[in-house]
Structures are given as structure tokens and as C-alpha cells.
Nucleic acid binder design. Structure first.
Lengths: 196, 196
DNA sequence: ATCAACTTTGAACGGACGTTCCAATTCCGC
DNA sequence: GCGGAATTGGAACGTCCGTTCAAAGTTGAT
């Protein structure tokens, strides 16, 4: 399957259509007819290139989970700020894939296969974030860094959800406050920090 | 519809079954047959009590959104700690409804009707949280309180998601750190707070 | 130019879905 | 305990779903 040029192009058109439909209407709204119509492809061609409808959905899901990690496999020198920036850009920029990514969080709760993938991706990200935390503040113990990483990631996910649901929500501004940027008082974690 | 005692009981059994199935398998996994089988009710009886499958799902969704607000309509004197505690208890305790609530966040991204409900519920909660923030720290401006409330709520939602996906994740411990409890350094917002 | 491998197409199929309908039964105020 | 209203159950219906299949067309190495 998909050894000729035309086959690969068709495969790409199908993936594009699936990605668009998944972001617009979610997994429950996706049908084979809608995919093949939008991709301008016969049903038979679809089954020549993918084993099932589930297969193409999983492929898109896999890509979405990968996309949340900026330049994965790089030299591992990211600042915590870099990681947060990358996530905010991912969320506010490529909203197509971002919507899919956040749907997965909810869907992973019920679908075991998806839950496993989400959890694996989550654990990888915790590693990167906690490493960045220790680079940021070398005095942190590994455990403390991991906890801090998980809290920051959770907050980012929640902020991303809010941003996609509430139009006009300024995710970047809120994300900046997570690590104390912006110079204003009132950050999470220091509610009644003594002034001066 | 539902004027006799038996009718009301049947209605309740259908709602229970829908709630359970929704939490276990999500909205995409729910079918009329499964609902009626689990509720031990004929299909005709179902349509005697509800207009459609969608109607009963919406009813459960409405209840789930209401349930996230602790004792709503009370005297409005909650501490920020109270609100956070209530949310953590809601998430870690009643996982059936909690799962539905978090699915809604993801589903609301695609279904307009659900998105509207979720957004409305969200706005109400922001009000309560930001009022608590100002009670906590009267020096906050209304805007600053609202921003702080939204960040805390986002972090709570994200933590809840992590808790449901990652077994063994200690949500309460992480939530406590959101407002600086626990006495340990390294809270979000004060990454490099000077020790001593 | 040849030809095997690859690709395309849409009709056809079986199953699952939500909903309708109505005869039989049960409920409960009188 | 009578009688109208509410409730019950499940067969039947039309629709839409994912998938299969075989025949026709296209590709590209030789």
C-alpha cells in the first residue's frame, strides 16, 4: 500500500481531512463518508491505504501527541520559559491540532488505548519539564522538581482548555504569571507574600 | 410524562444508568440499548419519559456541571481554601461525575450546545473564586483577582485531568501547593523565592 | 512498449443505531 | 372496584455506519 507517488499524495489528503474533521467536530462527529468526501477520494481507495477508520484516527492522534513536544529529541537544553512558550504557541497557534490534543485528555479517560498513549506522552513531558525546573533552580531535589513540573503542566493544560473554550482569554499572559514573569504581585503560590 | 410514582422511579433508574455509562465509556460509547438494558426498562418506556437520547444525556450533563459547585447559592462566604478543597473532593471522591465533568471540557470544544453550558458554568465559578481571592487578599484589584481566580481554576482543572489519567497522582497535595500550603518552597509563582 | 504492481471507484452488504407505534398492563383518585 | 390516565415492552422501520469486493484505470521500472 502506498508505494507510488499518487498513493502517498492520497494518503496525505486523507490525513489532512481527518485532522480537520477531528478538530472541528471531535471523534464522535467523524465518519468515513465525511473523510472520503472531504479528501475527494473513493471509499475503496481509503481501504487501500488504511486498515480501518480507527487506524487513520490513531495516526492523527499520534501526530497530535508528538506535536505538543517542541523539537523533540533535541539537545535537551530548554529553559522552563522555553517549554512554556512552546506550549502556549502550540495552543494558541495551531488550534487544529491543539483541539485534538485537548480532546484526547477527556477521551483518554474512557478509551484505554488512548489513555495509554496519553499517559506515555505525559510522562515524557514531565521528564523534560522537571529537568528544566532543576536547571532553573539547581537547589531543587529531583522529587520537588517533578512535583513542580507536574503542577506547571497541569496549569498549562487547564489554561489551554480555558483558552479554547473562552474566546478572548489571554493564555500567554496567564502562562507568564505561572513562573512569576510580568512583575506583578499575586502569583499562584505566593498569595500573601509580604511586600518589600 | 412521569406523573405516577413508578414513572418517577423509572426516570431515576434511567438517569442513574446514563450517568454510569457516561462516566465509564464517554459520550461516544453510549447507546439507547445500553441505557435501557442497564436501567432494566423497555425502549418504549424510555421514550415515554424522555424526548430523545440526547435529552437524557443533557440532563446528566447539567447535573454534572451543577455538582462541581459546592453548596451553590449559599451565603457566599467561602474561603479560597474551601473552594479548592471542595473541588479536590469532588474530583477525587465522586469520580463518576468528575469524569463526566472533565469529558465536557474536551467535548465542549466541538459541540456548541455543550460549549455554551460549560462556558456559562465556568463564568459563574470565576465569580465565586475571584470573590474568595479578594476576601483572601483585600488589596487585590477586581481585575487582578479575576486573573488569579482563572489561573487557579485552570490549574485545578489540569490537576484533575492528571489525577484521573495517572493513577497514584496525589491531587490534594498538588492542589495545596497552589495556594502556598504545605510549607515547602518551590511553589508555582515563586520559582526562585529567596530562602529565609 | 510492456506488463506487473499499484491505485481508484462505487455498488452492495450486514449490522447497529435512534425512534415510532400500539396493545397489554398497571396505577391511583374517585 | 371502576375507569381514565399513565406506564410498559418489544416488534418494526428507515437510516447511516464501516467494510468488502471486483472490475477498470494508472504508474513507472524495465
Amino acid at each position: 500500500m502506498a508505494n507510488y507517488r499518487v498513493g502517498l499524495e492520497t494518503r496525505e489528503r486523507i490525513l489532512d481531512a481527518t485532522r480537520t474533521l477531528l478538530a472541528e467536530d471531535g471523534i464522535e462527529g467523524i465518519t468515513l463518508k465525511r473523510i472520503t468526501t472531504m479528501a475527494d477520494v473513493g471509499v475503496g481507495s481509503f481501504y487501500n491505504l488504511f486498515d480501518s477508520k480507527e487506524a487513520v484516527v490513531f495516526e492523527v492522534v499520534r501526530q497530535a501527541l508528538d506535536a505538543v513536544d517542541p523539537h523533540p529529541g533535541s539537545s535537551e537544553g530548554d529553559t522552563l520559559e522555553d517549554l512554556i512558550d512552546a506550549f502556549v504557541t502550540f495552543m494558541t497557534g495551531s488550534s487544529t491540532i491543539a483541539r485534538i490534543y485537548l480532546q484526547l485528555a477527556g477521551l483518554g479517560l474512557t478509551d484505554e488505548a488512548i489513555a495509554a498513549r496519553v499517559l506515555r506522552s505525559h510522562r515524557r513531558r514531565v521528564q523534560r519539564f522537571s529537568a528544566a525546573c532543576r536547571r532553573d533552580d539547581p537547589s531543587l531535589t529531583p522529587d520537588a522538581a517533578r512535583e513542580r513540573a507536574e503542577t506547571i503542566m497541569a496549569a498549562l493544560t487547564g489554561l489551554g482548555l480555558t483558552a479554547l473554550i473562552d474566546p478572548g482569554f489571554d493564555m500567554r499572559a496567564h502562562a507568564d504569571r505561572l513562573v512569576g514573569r510580568g512583575g506583578q504581585p499575586g502569583n499562584i503560590g505566593s498569595p500573601s507574600a509580604p511586600p518589600v
